[in-house]
Design a protein around this nucleic acid. Sequence first.
DNA 1: AAGTGGTCTAGACCACTAT
DNA 2: TAGTGGTCTAGACCACTTT
Lengths: 260, 260
Amino acid sequence: MTRKSKTPPALRNDRIDRSSYEPAYAQLANLLRHHMATGVFHPGDQLPSESQLVGRYGVSPMTVRRAINLLADQGVISTAQGRGTFVRGVELGAATFGFKELQNLFSNKEQTQVKLLEARVRAADDRTARKLNLVSGQRVIYLRRLLCIDNQPAFYHREYLVYDPARPVVESEMEVTSLQGLFSGVGETVLKRGDLSVEATILNAEEARLLGATSPAAAFCIEHVFYDLKDAPISWGWFVCHSSHLRFTTSVGVPRVQPT
Amino acid sequence: MTRKSKTPPALRNDRIDRSSYEPAYAQLANLLRHHMATGVFHPGDQLPSESQLVGRYGVSPMTVRRAINLLADQGVISTAQGRGTFVRGVELGAATFGFKELQNLFSNKEQTQVKLLEARVRAADDRTARKLNLVSGQRVIYLRRLLCIDNQPAFYHREYLVYDPARPVVESEMEVTSLQGLFSGVGETVLKRGDLSVEATILNAEEARLLGATSPAAAFCIEHVFYDLKDAPISWGWFVCHSSHLRFTTSVGVPRVQPT
DNA sequence: AAGTGGTCTAGACCACTAT
DNA sequence: TAGTGGTCTAGACCACTTT
């Protein structure tokens, strides 16, 4: 059912508080979000036009536009030029997940330890050479690390680094990719870009042993390739994490709103 | 190494094309992104101030601001009030991934089939009752579905729906949650909100049989709870998908840019 | 005090959709 | 043609950081 009345009900006494520290555009976005959450607007409904909102809330067009863009970015509404702005329902395709859960694991707890299990130079096999854009047999640095949280092994990390004496010192690169600041963004980085992929996998015997899990156990595998400033691959590796330590969560549709 | 020269090098003859269909703010964002990608600005560097950009590119402050916000939203740069705008390096915590891959699976191929394996009313067990905010023993609808792509089983879906004769027709809710439009956003929805979580798991015997996999096999489990317009849970269920069918990918840091 | 990012105004013009 | 969203201007004022 779509509303056709030109003046939607129950846009009652909601106003922008100009003395608030919360910016006007954010207040307006929250008001609209609240109206969607409380059923004033239903999925599929057309929102009041921008000029109507300008008049109703006494703000400038740019401010309205910014609130609209904010909600559209969050996937709560959708806009169509010449037609109007509409409330979106639930669309799974719009869901996005972040690595916040990972970030928290590492930043909040100071009990994070990195144990270096192995570090040595070896010749790249075919697969490694392909990933790092080398020729097979070139020398690479092979690292194995165990990331512990509260002395519990959580992540098992294997990584190959290109080994080039002409490059800036290798230790520093090891430092860089040692994940200390990678998650939280602390510390500066020589790396410009990274590609990530997340897969589901089963721990093999070695992984299960290191992570203290009983085989077979489900796990996430997070593969990464990092590139330097010239877009040359510099690091290829993957984290393995027992499924009990990691879960990605998110919401779709109109966000819940605390009753005011 | 941080630059301190007040006039960064090599902002040469890049200009905004006012006759282009591409909006000025997008052009500016792309120019800046290109300069970051080609090493004019390095991770950690401070970008020219907004007023400098206004002068350099001959656009209004709002337009510069919009380009800056765009890049900041993408995680490429970060802004600090009173200090400046800076190029971000690689930060894993900033990574996000979506269901685009899923969306494509369902929208691109028209060979998608949904086979209903079972649909019956039963009493809710403790866990189901908790998830759907019912009391144990209340009646729910239990559904089992197999989603096939190109006649290959890809997803196994189990779902519990609240069964309330006073509600709008149940068939329509089954229709709604039948995933036809859930991913691509086609069709309208009675659902207002949904919570999702992604876990790694191992297929049990039944799941492996239905999905044509050999046990043990790694898989993603996507759990969902959907809420109606009054924020009451209406559906709880989960998709199981063999890991070979699904992989989430994303990038962090300064996006690659095609040489111009 | 100077410089920076953050917000906001009060319009303008354009492209698109509907009638 | 009227109404819609999309873009843009040329400033203003504020809050914050640094010197």
